[in-house]
Design a protein around this nucleic acid. Sequence first.
DNA 1: CTCGACATTGAAAATACCTTTCAAGTGTGA
DNA 2: TCACACTTGAAAGGTATTTTCAATGTCGAG
Lengths: 299, 299
Amino acid sequence: MKETFGDGGAAPAPAALAAKVRTLAPSMTRSMQRVAEAVANDPAGCAALTVTGLAELTGTSEATVVRTARLLGYPGYRDLRLALAGLAAQQQSGRAPAITTDIAVDDPIADVVAKLAYDEQQTLADTAAGLDTVQLGAAVSAAAAARRIDVYGVGASGLVAQDLTQKLLRIGLIAHAHSDPHLAVTNAVQLRAGDVAIAITHSGSTGDVIEPLRVAFERGATTVAITGRPDGPVTQYADHILTTSTARESELRPAAMSSRTSQLLVVDCLFVGVAQRTYETAAPALAASYEALAHRHRR
Amino acid sequence: MKETFGDGGAAPAPAALAAKVRTLAPSMTRSMQRVAEAVANDPAGCAALTVTGLAELTGTSEATVVRTARLLGYPGYRDLRLALAGLAAQQQSGRAPAITTDIAVDDPIADVVAKLAYDEQQTLADTAAGLDTVQLGAAVSAAAAARRIDVYGVGASGLVAQDLTQKLLRIGLIAHAHSDPHLAVTNAVQLRAGDVAIAITHSGSTGDVIEPLRVAFERGATTVAITGRPDGPVTQYADHILTTSTARESELRPAAMSSRTSQLLVVDCLFVGVAQRTYETAAPALAASYEALAHRHRR
DNA sequence: CTCGACATTGAAAATACCTTTCAAGTGTGA
DNA sequence: TCACACTTGAAAGGTATTTTCAATGTCGAG
């Protein structure tokens, strides 16, 4: 005959394992208590063990381990082990509040990854929440209809400018990125009504970027500023202002890092908006550029 | 002979299973993809199944299930199942519903913003979860001690390469970004042991980037690959592999967009890691560059 | 103090599950 | 069209889990 234990009524409890162990402890034999204790004390560790392993650890036998599992309400050790793994995962994920602190010089690399990822996620959420969709829509409309689009950005923002330009080119629009202030200005002079000029500057006060935008503005082009300071000097020449979020920075995490994340999201939104409005031409252009690149990949 | 799959280096990933499935999907066979898909779609359900059960559910064989588990980085199905149980428990204990739909041509601009922000956040989480901190640590150590660091990247990855270079320069290291494949190779020839070469390519098969990395590798430099395809050609010349996540893409949201987000996070982690290890020189260098820029702001 | 009934326990057999092997099927490039 | 490499599942081969069962220990009654 089969040995039967447990009340049978209790479903395989998910989380309240420690409690169950305490409740059932009095009705357990000595060896079973040892097993139950081990399980309650270190779910994660026990989840890594086989029946044999746990039996050895507790100085008992496989049979006892199985009996304990049964008493705790599981069909067998296999299922207890699964529950244990779940429990371990849960309580591990529970303890992750420490990410809010700054990155320290002696943080282990895993913490650095977690903190950076968290911060950037935060930045994205903030940016999305703070973005004025009306202004964005207006900028999109202007860009979609533009004869030509010039983008100004220096330093880290210069890369964002290039990113935007690359993508716009891919959907068949005419776009240029300028990080050389002189060339930017001389190009801005060529702009006229119907063209679009976009300045990207986190501080909102980068002279090298403001100057070409001013020229474009005066030439009658539609001007857009992507900046973290909606009250900064750059905005006085901007028809549309797209605000990026300013995350807290620390010594090891320069402002450039999160502002870049924020700027890229804005730029992506701008791009997708434009792609939507020019879908007829954008879709085949994207497909074509994709196709063209296939040849440059090795097998 | 024993069949061997998987990279072995990847530790049994804790949470980033869905991401891992996406990353590895391209290198899977059809039946394996069916298994992987089932696992990614319903971790909880699959955790309740035995190998045989999962094989039947997916219309494949036990062998295929085991192979898939291996490819995902686990020693066997047993361990995958444990991980699944953990995952199931985790995601049961509270999670947002997720904005799963693709961006459509007629989405209002506000939806575009929300979806893009959500997707990029997801990409960040996946990347952070899937990043091998051991590999990262090794790359950091090498870079911190390097005489010189060369970074290769073309197209969108070229901007990421520049971003990394800009930051490394700011903390006083000698770093160069190359997007011209000819110049990249001719520069790679100059590298020797103690130098570091970093290749950035989402596809893992961009010849223009692989070639200079190969040269650097053969010259004895420490080589690092930042790629979304840990099994791609680029990795054969890489001492350390940093895996970026592959998010689902759609027509309006090219892969380049999320891969860039992922790459930037990796690059940021690398940078911060290096800055930590070279803190004595990095801190004053950062302060100095900050100071130098102040003059370029108006008012 | 001795005996017997019963509970507890672990060794070992039996089973279920997981892993590996291998041959047949399938597609792919020369 | 053929040769080749890759993919796949059936079945053999191992492990882990479960069950059985006999040995041992416990405790109360005579």
